[in-house]
Amino acid sequence: MAAEIVSFMLNGRETVVVTNPLETLQSVLRDRLGYMATKSGCSQGGCGSCTVLVNGEPMVSCLLPAKDIEGQEVTTLEGLTKSGAGEIHPIQQAFYDNFAMQCGYCTPGMIMVSKALIDRAQRAGTHPTHDEIAEAISGNVCRCTGYQSIFEAISDASHRISGHEWSGGRDIGGKTK
């Protein structure tokens, strides 16, 4: 069994790691690099708790061989906070303010998908609609909160990021420009 060397950008930092053949990105992040925000849920691609962004697009890290992301850009929840500044990301703040978590296990995955969704909406000059949020988080399972507070947090976050007032509740969607 030959060890593999994989180098990739992790949260903007050049990272080189030695892995076993076919070792997953999830295992590399948690077991080798100590990046524990990425959760290990079902290991089947069914729960979304291990979701990370690869070149800005969500992928489930439990099914992703680390070697496949050689030279690519990976963002985990740790990458959203401003390092050293102790400052959390507006999406995290919105999840906190809207009580969009109970046990918190699904939260990192939810936030990574939210990040990709809000980024996409911003590029189009809109806020994500209720249906777009539903579709975006359909692969992320939360067994505590029910999803309403998560919908609200994502909509709130999208408004905060573009400096807009959010009227709250079910008022979701709208334009940023």
Partner: peptide, 9 residues
């Protein structure tokens, strides 16, 4: 087929 992340894969 799956959610967003799975559809990307």
């Amino acid at each position: 087929i799956g959610g967003w992340a799975v559809q990307n894969m």
